[in-house]
Simulated scan of single mutants.
Amino acid sequence: MQEEFGITTKMAEDFRTARPKEYYRKFLEQEVRPDGRELGETRTTVINVGCLSTANGSALVKMGNTTVMCGIKAECAKPKTEEPAHGFIVPNVELSPMCSPQFRPGMPGEQARVLSQFMLEVMKNSNCIDVKKLCIEPGRLVWTLYCDIVCLDYGGNVTDACVLSLLAALNNTVLPNVVLNKDTDKFEAFPDQSTTLQLQSSPVSSTFAIFDDEILFVDPTAEEENLATGQLTIVTTDDKLCMVHKPGGTPLTDQQLCLCIKQAFERTKEVLRLIDDTISSVESTYW
């Protein structure tokens, strides 16, 4: 592509560093990006489930240069008095200096906190898990699912990678059978009688970046995020629109929004097929 514009690799890199917006504009005018992707094309996505033996469920997701790992730990807890039969889902996203120098050590930054809240809203709005089915004994004991999502390499669009890693890890989660012994009035766990966590829906997020207030492209890299004038994240299941999240920036027309929603549904189908293939591959390995 660089040769088509009549410039050498060295000249292109200098131009990219000195005038990044103009550099991207040259490509986007041809409806292609510097990495060779079309505007509606996502990066190659790879999923690995069951990668943490110490967790009840886990998954590693790689989208281009962005790598995220999710581990789910199930612990017993006392339910809320007003919701005696409801379990808990507690997502937590970690963005440390290990994944990018833009993050600082210490307390979670604003982006990590916003992402953690976003993960919780995704779970609620999609009705992914029926929290009533996390109940062991009403009013006495329920499951709490601690979902720790850690970004290992930040290459842009960490939101979609986090949602995907959480979904894949939930599909891999097993819970031991816990019952109340009426003779001793104590709860007993039977790990050899574990059951797979049942999901009611499978939410997938698709993030779009807006360039020059009008050009839309999906799955932005870190560099593209820095140049964007706005972002939009759409969460869908295979048949339901769950969330539309747009934190400010350039407004979109109804036509642009409809196009993004259509592409989000198409992306959801691709991701769900990928998860199914990954889980089937793991299961065939064990059997």
Rank of each mutant, 00 (worst) to 15 (best):
M1V: 15
Q2N: 10
F5Y: 08
T8A: 06
M11Y: 07
A12L: 09
R19S: 08
Y23A: 05
Y23F: 12
R25I: 00
K26M: 15
Q30W: 10
P34T: 00
T42W: 14
N56T: 08
K62T: 15
V68Y: 02
A74C: 12
A74S: 10
C76F: 10
A77K: 13
K78G: 06
P79L: 05
E83S: 14
A85S: 09
F88D: 06
I89L: 13
V90E: 09
L95D: 10
L95Q: 13
R104A: 06
P105M: 11
G109F: 06
E110K: 12
Q117P: 02
L120I: 08
S126A: 15
N127T: 07
I129G: 14
V131P: 05
C135S: 06
P138N: 00
G139Q: 05
L141Y: 09
V142D: 06
I149S: 04
I149P: 02
L152W: 06
G156W: 15
A161W: 03
A161H: 01
L170D: 03
N172S: 00
T173P: 03
L175G: 02
V179Q: 12
V179H: 09
K186E: 12
S194Q: 14
Q198H: 13
D213V: 05
F217R: 03
P220Q: 13
E224K: 11
T229V: 08
Q231N: 15
L241Q: 05
C242D: 09
K246T: 00
G249N: 00
G249L: 04
Q255D: 13
C260H: 07
K262P: 09
E266A: 07
V271H: 00
L274I: 00
I275E: 11
D276G: 07
D276L: 12
T278Q: 01
T278N: 01
I279K: 14
I279S: 14
S280A: 13
V282M: 12
